[in-house]
Amino acid sequence: MTSTTFSTDEKRAGRGSGRRRGARRGLAWRLWHRCLRSGAFRTLGPFVPVVALWWLLAALEVFPESFFAGPPAVVDKFGELMEKGILPGYLTDSLTRLCYGVGFGLLIGLPLGFAVAMSRVLRRACWPILLFFQAVADIAWLPIVIVWFGFSLTTVTFVIVYTIVFPLMLSVVAGVEQVPRELVRAARSLGAGRLRVFLEVIVPGALPSVAGGIRTGLGYGWRALVAAEIIVGTSGVGFMMFDARRVGDVSQVFLGMAVLGTLWYALDALILAPFERATVERWGMVRAMEADG
C-alpha cells in the first residue's frame, strides 16, 4: 500500500515541478500568480476582456447600431427599466414561475422516480415511456397546454414542471441502477432492513446521478421558461426581450440576455455547484467501489 501511494506522490511532485517553471521571476510575477489563483479572479477575470471587446466593437460601429448595442447603452437601459420598476417586476415574474416549476418538478419527479426505480419490472416497463416523454421536447407541449389552460401562469408552470420531471426521473432510475450490488448486499448482511437499505445505501448512491439530472432538468427548464414567455408572452424576462425585439430596441434585447446569463450563473454558483460538489465526492467513492468489485 505504501509503495503505491508514494509513487503517486512522486509523480505529483514531478508534474508540479514542470508546471511552475517561473517560480523565481520576481515579485510582480508572483503577485500576478496569486491573483490568478483566487477564485473570484478566475471566474470574473475572463469577462473583463470580453466586455472590453464588446465595447470596442460597439464604439467602432463595426455593426449597424440597430443590430448591436454597446455596454453603455445596455447599462443606461438597465437604469431606466429599474427606475420604472419594469425589470424588477418581470424578474420576479420569471423567478416565481421558475420556483413553482422547479418545486413541483422535484416534488413529483423524485418520489415517482424512486418508486419506479425500486422495482425491476416497473423500471423496465417505464423506461421507454420515460424516454419517449423526454424525447417529446417540452416546448412542443406548449400549444396543447395553451389549448388547455390558455395564456396563463399555469401554462408556463406546466411546461417547466414537465421539463424537469422527465430528466429527473430518468436520472433517478439510472442512478439507482448504478448503485453497486455489493453495497446493497453488504448492508443486508450487516442486518439492514429494506427501508434502511433504501435510505442509507440506495438514496446516497443514486445522488450523484440525481444531481446531474437536476442540472439537466434546470437547464431545459430555464430554456422552456424563456420560450414560454416569448410565445405565451404576457410578462417576464423572455417577454421583455421579445417585446423589445418587436419594436427594435436592441439594447433591451442585449440587457435581457445579460440578465438571463447572470441569473443562471448565480443559480449555478450558489445552488447547483455546491450541491454537486458535495455529491461528486460521493461519486468518487461509489466509483472506487465499483472498480474494486
Binding site: 430554456r223 416569448i230 421579445f242 434585447v253 435581457g256 438571463l260 443562471w264 450563473y265
Partner: peptide, 19 residues
C-alpha cells in the same frame, strides 16, 4: 475560457431567438 463557456452554455439556444 472555462467561466465564459459556462456562461454561454447557460444562455445558448432559445434565449438568442430575439436577437
Amino acid at each position: 475560457f472555462l467561466p465564459l463557456l459556462r456562461f454561454s452554455v447557460a444562455l445558448a439556444g432559445i434565449a438568442w431567438i430575439p436577437i
